[in-house]
């Protein structure tokens, strides 16, 4: 379930420096998140979709992510037209739909998909480890990036540990139901995972102290941004400025 399939690849997006991609993704996402015009959000979706297309993601995985985000949008489409209120309404058989609600739902769907595309094209094309180191270079506190990198490192171990305990429970004939017994079993399973990860944490910490750990993590791969990276950054910032400029223009929608 936990994988980083998007980060495998060799397109120009995969080759860019993570720092540059972080700045670009932040700029475009913030502009899209703040825009309040459907036209600008629509243009944003088209631009980010082109970026996503250029990063050549695996179609099946892409569809899965797309579905995940849009299940929530479906909820918005069901609820907002009925509950949003506002002046204008539209009669649709026996339902009284609010036009403002429909407009809001469309805006939210466009914005959330645009930001998703931007995220997948720019950030998911780097591994979490590279992003973590990139964040540190961009000024995120070292303790926080350390927490991120180590949680990421241990995540898979703990997930396996939990699955092992879960398998053991299944072999003993445990079938989840709506009962207190089920909740207690899940709690004990999780409690045991917690105990194991706690003890693992102590051991890892001791091992690192023995190896002279001082709070510094030195990545073996330390890419320096080159000309292509700066050009990429310039393009991303240009796109976000363009979108920001458009959203400041008086558009009717």
């Amino acid at each position: 379930m936990i994988d980083e399939s998007f980060s495998m690849g060799s397109t120009l997006f995969h080759k860019r420096d993570p720092k540059v991609k972080l700045i670009g993704a932040a700029a475009i996402s913030i502009v899209l998140a703040l825009c309040s015009s459907i036209v600008v959000a629509g243009i944003g979706v088209i631009v980010t979709a082109i970026l996503l297309f250029l990063s050549k993601p695996a179609p099946c995985l892409l569809f899965k992510r797309f579905l995940q985000v849009n299940v929530f949008n479906l909820f918005i489409w069901i609820t907002l037209p009925l509950t949003y209120g506002g002046g204008e309404t539209m009669q649709f058989s026996f339902l009284n739909l609010s036009l403002d609600g429909i407009r809001m739902a469309a805006l939210i769907s466009l914005k959330s998909n645009g930001i998703l595309f931007c995220f997948l094209a720019l950030l998911a094309t780097s591994s979490t480890a590279n992003l973590g180191h990139g964040m540190e270079k961009l000024g995120v506190p070292r303790k926080l990036t350390f927490l991120l990198l180590f949680s990421y490192r241990q995540l898979f171990v703990i997930h396996r540990e939990y699955q092992r305990l879960q398998r053991a429970a299944k072999l003993r004939g445990f079938t989840p139901k709506n009962s207190l017994h089920t909740y207690r079993t899940y709690s004990y399973l999780f409690g045991m995972t917690l105990v194991r990860s706690w003890n693992r944490g102590e051991r890892v910490h001791q091992a690192m102290i023995l190896r002279g750990f001082t709070g510094n993590l030195i990545p073996l791969d330390q890419p320096q941004p080159g000309k292509a990276d700066y050009f990429f950054l310039f393009t991303m910032l240009f796109i976000s400025l363009l979108l920001a400029g458009l959203s400041l223009m008086p558009l009717t929608l």
Partner: peptide, 11 residues
Amino acid sequence: RIMTVSLLSAT
């Protein structure tokens, strides 16, 4: 404590 906290964060 940072190692413990990262483990708990992963948990």
